[in-house]
Design a protein around this nucleic acid. Structure first.
Lengths: 217, 217
DNA sequence: GAATTAATTGAACGTTCGTTTTATTATTTC
DNA sequence: GAAATAATAAAACGAACGTTCAATTAATTC
C-alpha cells in the first residue's frame, strides 16, 4: 500500500505531536522508538520523516512549542497594572494552571534538555530564562517598593518556580484537591515566601482575599 | 588477554559505580551504553556483567544505595530533642548538604525512576516515602504544638522538598554562594513557609539566630 | 609448584535502532 | 480525465544495543 484514503498532512502531524508528547513524557525520549511512535499514530515509521527530518527535530519542536505557549500564556495573563502583588498573583496562578494543563509537555521540557544539540539547548534555555526573568523582575520591584520582604531575589525566584512546578509531580486532577484549591494554597505559600505577611491572622483568611478576585484586574 | 595484573573485584565494582553515576547523571540511563560505561572504567563491556547481571540491576543498585545513604544521613543528623523547630532546622540542613554533595546520584534517583521494573520502583519509592514522612511528621507536630502555622501539612511538605531539592539545578560550588550561605537562605525561606514568622523584624535578622547554633543541639 | 579460583578479554548472538530509498496510491489541479 | 503533487507503505541499510560464551591469564590456596 501507499497513500491511504483520507490521509491528511496536517492531521497526521498533529497526531504525531500528540502521541509523541504522551509517549516521551511517560517513557522518556531515548526510550521511545520511532517505530513505537508510528504505531501509536497508526502509521509506518517512515511516514514520520515527512514531518520531522530527525527524531531530535521532533523533540526540539515539542519543547519549543511548549516554551512558546508558556510565554504566550503569561503574555495573555499579565495584568496591565504595575502593582507587584497583583502581578505576582497573576504569575503564580498562570504558572500553576498552565503546568497542570500541560503536564506531559512540561515533563519533557524539564527532563529531556540533555538530548538536545548544544545550539538547540541554548535556544530553549533562552526562552526559559526569559520566562523566569519575569518573576525575578516582579520580585525585585516588589522588594524595592516595600510590597515584599525578600532576602535574595534570585534564590527566592528559583525556589518559587521549583516549588510551583513541583505541582505536576503529585497533582492528579479529580482527587483530593481541585486546581482552584491547589492554586489557593500555593498563593498562600508564595506570599509567605516573599514576606508578605503582616501579623496574626491565619494565612487561610489572608490569602482568600486575593487570588481569583485580583487576578482578573 | 584475560585477567589483567593488579585487577581487583572490589575496586572494579567501585569504579563501575562511580563512572555509572557520573555518566547516567549527565547523559541519562537510556543514553548511556554498557560499552560507553566500560570504556570509562577502562574495561571491556563483558566485565561489567560480573558485578551487575543486567543494566537495570546496576541502575537499581545505584538508586537503592542513594536512598539508603539519604535515610542514613538523616538518622545520623536527627536531633534527640523533640522540639519541632530544631528538628526542622536539622532536616533542612541535612537535606541541602546531602543533595549538594550527591548531586549526580540525586539526579538519577529523581529522573530515572521510569526505567525501573514495577517491583523495584515500588521498593525505591517506599524509601523515598519514608524519608518524606519524616518531614511531614515534623510539620504536623509543629503545627499541633503551635510552633508552626500551616494550612496544609502535606502540600507544605511537598513544596519544601521540591524547593530544597531544586538547589541542585542551579547550585555550583565555588560560585557566588557557599553551601553555608545557601543553607542559611533556605532555612529562612523554610521558616517563612511554615509560618514561623512573628512580626516586624527583617527575615535576615530572624534567621541568623537559628541554623548553625541550633543545629548541633 | 600444582591446582584452584578470580578477573577479564575478545568475539559473537540476535535484536532493535534511526534513517533512507523506492514504489504505490490518494488527492488535487487544470 | 490526464497530469501533477501529496501522503504513505514496504523493504532495506549499517550501526549500535544488551548480553552470552569460551578462552585466557593473574592471584590464591594448599
Amino acid at each position: 500500500m501507499a497513500r491511504t484514503t483520507g490521509s491528511d498532512g496536517e492531521k497526521t502531524e498533529a497526531a504525531i505531536r500528540e502521541a509523541a508528547v504522551e509517549l516521551i513524557a511517560r517513557y522518556g525520549y531515548e526510550a521511545v522508538s520511532m517505530r513505537q511512535l508510528a504505531a501509536e499514530v497508526g502509521v509506518q515509521a517512515a511516514a514520520l520523516y515527512r514531518y520531522f527530518p530527525t527524531k531530535e527535530d521532533l523533540l526540539f519542536s515539542l519543547m519549543h512549542e511548549h516554551m512558546d505557549a508558556l510565554l504566550g500564556a503569561w503574555n495573555d495573563a499579565r495584568p496591565a497594572t504595575s502593582d507587584p502583588t497583583t502581578r505576582l498573583i497573576a504569575y503564580v496562578t498562570n504558572h500553576i494552571a498552565f503546568h497542570i494543563e500541560r503536564r506531559p509537555s512540561t515533563h519533557i521540557s524539564n527532563m529531556e534538555l540533555r538530548s538536545l544539540s548544544p545550539e538547540r539547548l541554548t535556544q530553549v534555555l533562552k526562552l526559559r530564562t526569559a520566562y523566569e526573568k519575569e518573576l525575578r523582575t516582579i520580585l525585585r520591584e516588589g522588594s524595592e517598593d516595600g510590597s515584599f520582604t525578600i532576602e535574595d531575589t534570585g534564590l527566592t525566584a528559583m525556589a518559587l518556580i521549583q516549588m510551583m512546578t513541583g505541582v505536576i509531580v503529585w497533582f492528579r486532577p479529580g482527587e483530593r484537591l481541585s486546581v482552584a484549591g491547589v492554586t489557593e494554597t500555593y498563593l498562600s505559600m508564595t506570599m509567605r515566601l516573599v514576606g508578605r505577611l503582616v501579623g496574626a491572622t491565619t494565612s487561610r483568611e489572608q490569602n482568600h482575599v486575593h487570588t481569583r478576585a485580583e487576578l482578573r484586574a
